[in-house]
Every structure is written in structure tokens, then in C-alpha cells.
Design a protein around this nucleic acid. Sequence first.
RNA 1: GUGGAUGUAGUUCAGCUGGUAGAGCACCUGUUUGUGGCACAGGUUGUCGCGGGUUCGAGCCCCGUCAUCCACCCCA
Length: 403
Amino acid sequence: MINALRGMKDLTFEESQRFVHIITTAVSIAKRYGYGYIETPILEETALFKRSVGESSDIVGKEMYQFEDKGGNDVCMRPEGTAGVVRAFISAKLDRQPQKFKFYYYGPMFRYERPQKGRLRQFHQFGCESFAEASVYEDFTMISMIKDIFDALGIGYTLQINSLGCPECMPPYRENLVSFLTDIKEELCEDCNRRISTNPIRVLDCKNERCQSLLSSSPKLIHNLCESCDTDFAKLKALLDQADIAYEVDTNLVRGLDYYSKSAFEFVSSEIGAQSAIAGGGRYDRLVEFLDGRATPAVGFAIGIERIMGLVKLPEIGREGIYLGAMIPEAIDTLFPIAQQKRKEQKVTVEYNKKSLKAHLKGADKAGAKIAAVIGEDELKNGTIWIKDLESKEEQTLPLEAF
RNA sequence: GUGGAUGUAGUUCAGCUGGUAGAGCACCUGUUUGUGGCACAGGUUGUCGCGGGUUCGAGCCCCGUCAUCCACCCCA
């Protein structure tokens, strides 16, 4: 027997219903916010991710499904969605248009990690990217959209926000931080020591308690923002307050991808285990430029479908449609014209074998049908059909034309 | 990549100090030969993850391997 690969899952029945429900809910809300669908390839040139996500990230460093294709190209299964959308945006030369563009997407992402609760090798994201809108109002609007989606799905969450600064205030802060960290490096954990040179900002995120206590007196970017970043962050908080959206400022919130700047946010849930982030995003004003486009400000986010799958309240669906069956072989053929007609509007299940009335009713029950319609000897002779409403238990025999 | 736990019927699990497997649920059939969801009765299903080893004998012990789960790491 061949099993699915490690970290890859099949979805059926209730799970697949949840999946579809999440996507359709998110899509309808994104459309209301003016987003249009974008589909980009799953396979991209490896260089795209190296340049966008960043070589220092774990994603690019050790988690990519990377290989050489038959034409000798260095390719990679996308580990996240933003890079591909930005690439498509630039390829279509939309960066040269004096307009704003908003796209939503959803689909599989691939990361070669050790699976655990809420972490798969093939997982799915729903995401949005907004281009050419530099205003912090857009950051706010995006958070508000995620809130709408989670509310519609009945999901509880905590919102965490932070500002990651910009090319003006980040570099001096980084130097500042590195010198602080270097002074105490003997006491920091092994991982943090490595991070001082690779990605010092991420030291702030260390889960080691000892490191955290040492870091309490570290310089905070939030207190070293340039004027523009500072006023934008203040504005974002004000807008969230005004909209009554609860949030926590988490000065240690560091997005794992290199391309973020200014606003960063993460929605977390306490109910799903260690992998608690259910959505994450932020501003990435420089990414279009990094990928050889014309400088274009942008904001985006992604929701992890599998992460919220268990949290979603699925609307209850009752009995639906019609079950058709025959009690004698000669009546079976008469079922199909009826089915054809009824399927124009309803769900129809046809049983191809003759069965006893009892067996048909059981079958109708199992099929989740609202109406059981059966043709037996008498009905065939009289050109009628026997109907039972499985909910109200009402039954009647109707002429075929009247059904 | 690291650590821990677990792998027995479709599924959830039991299986005492080693003697060639059981329960609930699900499924199928019956309980007036044309009436469902309930109840009752009966029934089907397993190379006990895989490969070695110890033993007269292993689901139970040992080694290896694969997989799953949880955590670290990282992130959606």
C-alpha cells in the first residue's frame, strides 16, 4: 500500500468541508475589500525565494523543496505566497502603472520541516497582497479584513502588532542592538550567539527564559523609530482603538521573513498547540525593488488554513435533496428521467439496485436525503411515485408528472 | 536537524508474570413478505507497522528500520 508522503494530508468528508468553507468565506470577504484573484505557479526559480524571503531565514536555509528540473533549472516549490505574487506583479509590469492593485490567492505551500501539530510539509494559505498603497490606513484595513474573516468563521484570537522600522531607523537600531548583545553574549544561549551575526533581531524572539530576562533591558526598536515610522505606528494603534479591535504591542514580534518593514502583525490562538500563529503579515515596501521592479509600497498577510481548521464552526447542514429507488427491476429505468429533471435544482441520489422499501429508506437516510422517492410494482403500473418526507414523515403517492 | 511517546480489525482502544487475539463504535443481515433514524438478536473484518534476533513458543523480550504524534527549532 502506498501512503501519502510525510507531512502531507488527504482531506475528506467533514475536513474537506471545513477547508472549502474557510476558503469561500475568506474569498467573499476579500472581494468585498476590493481584492481580485491571482493565480501564480507553485514552482518558481529558487533565486526568487532567496532574494525575497532571505537567505538568512530558516525557510530558505533549510526548508525548501528545491531541485534541478530536467532542463537543468534550479527550481523550488513555493514555501510561501508573497514572493510569487510580487514576481507576477513585476512580470506584468504593473509596477509601472500609476494605480493600486489588490490580489488574493490561496493554495498549497511547501516546507521541508519535521511535522507536528499545526505544521505540515504541504500546507495551505489564503493570502492578500496590496500594492502601491503606502498609507497606514491600508495596514489597518488589512487587519480589519482578517478580523472580519475570523469573526465570520467563529474563531477566537489575539492580535499582536509591532513596528519593524524602515531603512532609515532599522540599521542604526540594529547596530545598537548588536553591541548590546555582544556585551552579554557569554550569558546568552548558543542559538542566540549564532543569531547575533545572522539575524540579531531574532534574538529578541528567543524562547529561552534566561535569555528573555537578560533581554528585558535591551534597546527596543519601538523606542528608536524614525519620525515617519513612529507616527504611522501611533496612527495604526489609534485606528485599531477606534475600530474597537483589541491588540497587544509585542516588541519582540519579529516576522521570520526578511522582507518585512514597518507594521508587522500576527494573529495567534491559544487553542491549537505550540504552533499558535494563525495569520501573519505586514508591510514590505522594499520587496518590489529587491525583485527588480520599480519601488512600490505594499502590504500583505497570509492565513494558515490547517491552523484554523479545528477552530472553525461549521454551519450545520440538515437533510438535503432526493433519494430515488426502485423495488422491482423493471422500475429502475424510470428513475433516470426523474433524476435528470430534478438535478437541475437539487441534489439527487439514485440507487441502481432494486431493494425492499425498508432498505431504500435506510439508504435515503444514509444519503442524508430529505425526500425518499420509491417506485414499486403498484406505482409502476399506475404511473405514480411514492414520496416520503424523511423529516416530517409525511408520505404520499403522486402521479409522475406531478412530482 | 534534536528529544520524548506511540504503532493490534474501517475506527477508538484492551491484551495480566512470553503459550499463535478481543471490546465499543462503524458496517452487513434479520426482528409482519412495502416503511428509515431507536431497541434487540446475529454476523463480517486482522500477514498484531516492517525486517532480523532470543525462545520449544513472541502482540508481548532484544536490535534495526519505517511511520505517526507531541515538543524543541521555526513559522501560517
